[in-house]
């Protein structure tokens, strides 16, 4: 598979900006519109651009699925932390009168985990589709 020179050149320019925008959407999920799923989808699009630049075979799909399972476990663990402090599942572990800047740590952490999980999942989906189309 050989791509046109213009597409490769524009992809090289565009790739870092899309990557930075994805991370921005994930990390600022509690301040600006966006969040885990949206940022993860943008990150997956950025990784999709790399397939235009370097058309190689992909054989890391099993590793991606395994990593996604681990991240899902971590999301459940972080979400269940409130069982220890408050006695109920799936809410902020810090008490309500705590400072806002401390409570945001939980939001940023969970946004980051969900964002990386969604990005890895979408990358695994279209990697397997690309490999299927190439064989």
């Amino acid at each position: 598979m050989k791509n046109s020179q213009i597409l490769v050149c524009i992809s090289r320019v565009l790739f870092p900006f899309v990557l930075v925008f994805g991370f921005y959407v994930i990390v600022n999920g509690h301040l600006t519109p966006g969040g885990g799923f949206q940022g993860g989808a943008i990150l997956a699009t950025a990784i999709l651009i790399t397939y235009f630049i370097i058309p190689e075979r992909i054989n890391i799909i099993d590793g991606l699925v395994r990593l996604e399972k681990h991240l899902f476990l971590w999301i459940i663990v972080v979400g269940s932390l409130s069982l220890i402090t408050k006695g109920t599942f799936f809410t902020n572990p810090l008490p309500i009168p705590a400072a806002i800047s401390f409570k945001r740590i939980f939001l940023v952490l969970l946004n980051f985990l969900i964002g990386s999980k969604v990005a890895i999942g979408l990358v695994a989906i279209f990697s397997s589709f690309i490999e299927e189309g190439r064989s």
């Binding site: 399972k69 599942f89 309500i96 999980k117 999942g121």
Partner: peptide, 28 residues
């Protein structure tokens, strides 16, 4: 209550975290 300026994030990461977690399991 949640420390989030974006109300949508406050809802899906605090009030309705149960829903969000099983939504991610759907993608898995």
């Amino acid at each position: 209550e949640t420390g989030s300026r974006n109300i949508v994030t406050g809802i899906y990461l605090d009030y309705r975290l149960f829903d969000s977690i099983f939504e991610t399991s759907l993608l898995l």
